[in-house]
């Protein structure tokens, strides 16, 4: 019984079986080198910006907005929260309460996965390609991705597909994001 020697081969071949069809399709995206991918995202973002198809607004927290506990829509734009409110909504956001983008004209956008995707995760849980401004590119290296939670209460500009949504709240599948300052305030930036 020397079949046990096949065990390592069997075990090592297991990962190949783990690639599902979805992963294989996703893998195609990563055949493009990282720098090229980032350049494509940047070009797409600036093209959308030129056509006026980007959305600019502040990130607001949904629970306190929809139960009328906090009214960021009635506060000065770019100052949606007091410090006390910010401390509370930041905790809620990292506990996965839903985040929205509130534009200056009062339109609310709900970040969504791409149209047609049935099974999805919270849009707050994954990284979004970050487009750096010209000024940011000249400075120290910065994060080239961002997630929404650390950006709560801050102004962002996003590009992506916009959906009519429901009852006045629009949907947006965010493809790229741009914002001033550090991703995590007070911490060193990364170049990843």
């Amino acid at each position: 019984m020397k079949l046990w020697k096949l065990l390592p081969v069997l075990l090592l071949s297991t990962p190949l079986a783990c690639l599902t069809q979805g992963e294989i399709e996703e893998a195609d995206v990563y055949k493009t080198p990282y720098a090229e991918r980032m350049k494509m995202a940047e070009d797409k973002f600036y093209a959308a910006q030129k056509e006026g198809k980007t959305v600019t607004g502040v990130i607001v927290e949904g629970n306190t907005l929809f139960n009328n506990t906090i009214e960021p829509q009635n506060k000065p734009y770019k100052q949606p929260y007091t410090q006390e409110e910010y401390d509370a909504v930041a905790i809620s956001a990292e506990r996965n309460s839903k985040l929205f983008i509130l534009t200056e004209d009062g339109t609310l956008y709900y970040p969504t996965p791409p149209q047609g995707q049935l099974v999805s995760e919270s849009e707050q849980a994954h990284r979004i390609d970050r487009v750096l401004t010209e000024e940011q590119k000249k400075g120290p290296k910065m994060f080239t991705w961002a997630t929404l939670v650390p950006l709560i209460g801050r102004e962002v500009e996003v590009s992506g597909e916009i959906f009519p949504g429901y009852s006045g709240v629009k949907g947006i599948n965010i493809e790229a994001i741009q914002f001033e300052g550090l991703y995590i305030v007070g911490q060193s930036e990364e170049s990843v």
């Binding site: 990292e94 995760e121 919270s122 707050q124 849980a125 929404l148 650390p150 709560i152 995590i184 911490q187």
Partner: peptide
């Protein structure tokens, strides 16, 4: 974290 939709924290900790 991916399956449960765990977010990053506002001070940057990973899921």
């Amino acid at each position: 974290g991916h399956r449960m939709g765990v977010t990053y924290t506002f001070n940057g900790s990973y899921p």
